[in-house]
Amino acid sequence: MSALTVGEQGPTITALAQLLADFPHLPAAHIEIGRILTRDGYALGVGIMLHHATGGTLADFEAWRQSLAIAPEAVGMRPAAADQVIEAHGRYAGVAVHVRCFTRLAVPLAVAA
Rank of each mutant, 00 (worst) to 15 (best):
I31K: 08
E73D: 15
A96K: 03
F102V: 02
R78C: 03
A29N: 04
T14A: 15
P108K: 05
L20P: 00
E73Y: 02
P72K: 00
G7L: 12
R35H: 11
P11C: 09
P108N: 07
G76E: 10
A15F: 00
A29D: 03
D60K: 04
G7R: 11
I13P: 02
Q9H: 06
Y92D: 00
F23P: 10
V111P: 00
R65Q: 09
P72A: 02
A63L: 10
V99D: 00
M49I: 09
L44F: 07
L20E: 15
L16S: 00
A80C: 13
V99E: 00
A59T: 13
Q84P: 00
H25I: 05
A17Y: 09
E73T: 15
H30G: 08
R78L: 13
I36C: 06
A69M: 08
F102K: 03
I31C: 08
T54I: 09
A63R: 12
V95C: 06
V97Q: 00
Q9D: 07
T5E: 11
A112V: 10
P72M: 04
L68C: 05
A81Q: 12
Y92M: 05
M49A: 11
R104I: 09
F23Q: 13
I36N: 04
V6M: 07
I33M: 11
D40A: 15
E8V: 00
T54L: 07
H98S: 15
I86A: 06
A106H: 11
P27F: 07
A82Q: 13
L37A: 15
I33W: 01
T54N: 09
A29S: 12
V95H: 02
F61I: 02
R104C: 06
G41P: 06
A69N: 14
A93D: 06
A21C: 08
L26D: 07
A106I: 12
A15H: 01
H98D: 15
C101D: 01
G56Q: 01
P11G: 10
G47C: 06
A63E: 07
R104F: 08
P72L: 05
I33D: 03
A93H: 07
D60C: 04
R91N: 12
A53W: 10
F102C: 05
E62V: 05
W64D: 00
G76Y: 08
L37S: 12
G10H: 13
A80F: 15
G94M: 06
D40C: 02
A43I: 03
V75I: 08
H89A: 02
G7T: 11
G34P: 01
V6T: 12
P11T: 08
E32C: 08
Q66W: 01
I86E: 08
I48E: 02
C101M: 08
T14C: 02
G41H: 07
